[in-house]
């Protein structure tokens, strides 16, 4: 029944990403995809906290399911492609570098936080 936990988590994570993106994108006027950036960094932080800090069923529900579906690589790369094609190459580079650096930083911070809590 492990797959049910993954599906249940993802069925919450994916719409949470959609609604967060709408919420964030309605609140700024730049072409930078802050919505996707936000969900990806938050998802990295939460998955980091969960790593090693929770049991297997919780990890499948909240990690593989929720965080996996909350974060996205496909939208991230498509938005980067659109920025590059629309002449905003600086933003495209900034999106990749910023997402990778902040995502990785959030993952390390999350793991440290998870270890401090357990």
């Amino acid at each position: 029944m492990n797959w049910l936990l993954v599906v249940a988590g993802a069925m919450v994570g994916a719409p949470l990403r959609y609604l967060t993106d709408r919420f964030v994108q309605a609140r700024h006027d730049s072409v930078f995809p802050w919505g996707t950036f936000t969900v990806n960094v938050v998802g990295c932080l939460v998955l980091g906290v969960l790593t090693g800090a929770v049991d297997e069923p919780t990890r499948l529900l909240l990690g593989t399911g929720l965080c996996g579906a909350l974060t996205t690589y496909s939208t991230f790369s498509y938005e980067t492609l659109r920025l590059a094609e629309d002449g905003a190459r600086g933003y495209a580079v900034l999106n990749v570098a910023g997402s990778v650096v902040c995502g990785l930083g959030a993952a390390f911070a999350g793991v440290a936080l998870g270890q401090a809590l357990t």
Partner: peptide, 27 residues
């Protein structure tokens, strides 16, 4: 687009596992 793009492909790909995988390798 919501079903196939935001939903299926968004749920299929993952940024968080990528970042935590890198963290795990370094650790």
């Amino acid at each position: 687009r919501p079903f196939l793009g935001t939903g299926v492909l968004g749920g299929f790909t993952t940024f968080s596992t990528y970042a935590v995988d890198v963290q795990r390798l370094v650790t």
